[in-house]
Amino acid sequence: MSAPDFYFAINDIFRHIHDVHGKDRLIDYWESLGREHYAKRNTDWKTGGPEVVVNDWRNYFAKEPGAEVEVSYTNDEALLDIRVCPAIKHLRDQQRDIVPYFCEHCDHICGAQAEAAGYRFKRSGGMGSCRQRFIQLRHPNENCTGTAKNPTSTL
């Protein structure tokens, strides 16, 4: 299966899970992919830092047909400037009906990966181009929204 065929498949899988089981189940599916399927990758990111995150994404997008992506990093952040998303481009070029929540898979898969690896994930834009940030958490009790957790607080 080529990458473009995979784009058709994931768009249809997202639609099926959403329509049959609901959006919450789709989000559960995405988050489990981020935590479980990418567990090794998450460990590599955690131990290697932002440079490893960037190199991982650089290698990933180098294999994706039609991708136009610039990656960079600082001491505590990996940044992906996705100018042309290969999945959205291919789906549009083939006149496919793209599910309106397609880009949310990045929020939940990458968000779960980031959390497992000690980062916070943020995405801006979507449906063809976006900016993704993996921000390394500085404090072990910091959560993925960037605020410190109080481990002794009660509700």
Rank of each mutant, 00 (worst) to 15 (best):
R92M: 14
I27R: 05
E77H: 07
G146D: 10
N150W: 10
D44A: 12
H37C: 10
C144M: 14
M1T: 10
L33N: 11
H37I: 07
T74H: 04
G66H: 04
D81L: 12
R58D: 09
A62H: 07
F6H: 06
I82V: 13
K149D: 09
N55D: 12
C130T: 13
G125F: 11
K23R: 15
T43S: 07
G22Y: 12
G34N: 04
D12Q: 05
W30I: 06
A148Y: 13
D81T: 10
G34Q: 01
G125A: 14
P151D: 02
R15D: 00
T74K: 02
D93V: 10
R96C: 13
D81G: 06
L79D: 06
E142K: 01
N42W: 00
P65S: 10
E142G: 02
A62E: 11
N75H: 11
P100F: 09
G49V: 05
K23P: 04
D28Y: 09
P50D: 08
R120I: 13
P65L: 12
F61G: 03
K89H: 07
E64G: 04
D81W: 04
N42H: 00
A9N: 03
V99T: 03
I17D: 05
H18P: 00
K149Y: 11
G118W: 08
L26K: 00
G146T: 05
P100Q: 11
R25G: 08
F102H: 03
N59W: 03
T43Y: 04
L91M: 04
